[in-house]
């Protein structure tokens, strides 16, 4: 419980820092949003007026304070590009798509990686291990967009097994939604899969050399049961850590996949907004992504206590 409370306190601090970082980063991006809006050949008065209207004439810290107060009351401002839509509304429309893609992709990756890694690790250097290792290396060395492109060509264009460019909300049509999300999620899954499998396989091999595995064997336990029941949990630190990092990374950076499959996710939102100099939109979106990242990793942090009871003591005193 104590651990949860200190984690929460840390979390608030980190999020505050993150918000400042996000704000600063966007404010320091080269390019003047006013210029972007006005286009070429504008009169200087219009420029000054627009900067004042956007609040850009005030000091940075004041602007940050303003923005932060807004954020805390759930107001992320509105887009500076017409139609000046509400930033939060746009994010709330795009976020579920990204979360679903990342979630499905990672779930598929883990579901495949765990058995593959166990199969590999059960006989290091064996035929299976080498085949799986080589395949994973192969997947890693092909850029995700190529794999995606290939999948689109074959399964969408040629075979027509999957629909093209008609994203449907999961609430509206769950089957259609899953049908549509499967391929893009698979593209995400493949690259993560290779990484997860390698990391987990290596940690499993290390764990399987431990004395307690020999002791478990000496009790007459079945090798598969030892793999699942004794070796997996102590071997899963790195892969769980990696998983946390992946969630955060994927929510904001599935642009290529979103583009390939015409999905209205966060990646598309951020990239478009950045191109248009729509700084409130970029700030809001990046803040949301960063917050998710921080929250997920705090959760991962707490899970270490479950994965290894020895780390619990450090916080109990």
């Amino acid at each position: 419980m104590r651990k949860v409370l200190t984690t929460l306190a840390e979390l608030v601090l980190v999020l505050l820092l993150v918000s400042f970082g996000v704000f600063l980063l966007v404010a320091l991006i080269p390019g003047d949003p006013a210029v972007a809006i006005l286009g070429d050949g504008f009169p200087p008065e219009a420029y000054a007026a627009l900067r004042a209207e956007l609040g850009l004439d005030r000091p940075l810290l004041v602007r940050y304070g303003d923005w932060l107060l807004g954020v805390l009351s759930g107001d992320l401002g509105s887009s500076i590009i017409p139609p000046q839509t509400d930033v939060l509304d746009r994010i709330l429309a795009a976020l579920p798509v990204s979360l679903q893609l990342a979630g499905m992709g990672l779930a598929m990756a883990i579901v495949l990686a765990v058995p593959l890694a166990m199969w590999s690790a059960s006989k290091p250097g064996g035929v299976v291990d080498r085949i799986i290792g080589a395949s994973m290396f192969g997947i890693l060395s092909v850029p995700a967009f190529l794999i995606g492109l290939l999948l689109v060509l074959v399964f969408v264009n040629e075979l027509g097994w999957f629909p093209r460019a008609q994203w449907v909300r999961i609430g509206a049509d769950p089957i259609g939604n899953l049908h549509h999300a499967f391929l893009p999620a698979l593209v995400i899954a493949l690259s993560e899969l290779a990484l997860f499998t390698r990391i987990l396989r290596n940690d499993l091999v290390t764990t399987l050399n431990e004395d307690f595995i020999l002791a478990a064997r000496a009790k007459g336990m079945h090798p598969v049961r030892i793999l699942v029941g004794d070796a997996l949990r102590p071997s899963s630190f790195s892969v769980v850590t990696l998983l946390g990092i992946s969630v955060g990374r994927l929510v904001g950076s599935t642009v290529i996949v979103e583009y390939l499959f015409a999905l209205p996710g966060m990646g598309t939102l951020v990239v478009n907004a950045a191109n248009q100099g729509d700084f409130p939109m970029v700030q809001g979106a990046v803040l949301v992504v960063a917050t998710i990242y921080v929250l997920v990793n705090a959760g991962i942090d707490l899970s270490y206590g479950y994965l290894d009871p020895r780390t619990r003591r450090a916080h109990a005193a």
Partner: peptide
Amino acid sequence: RRQLWGPRIAMVFQDPMTSLNPVK
């Protein structure tokens, strides 16, 4: 062979610090 391990023949290992599973 696994059916021998336990009821017929059993082993005590060298290092008790490492022969128990830390998460069990």
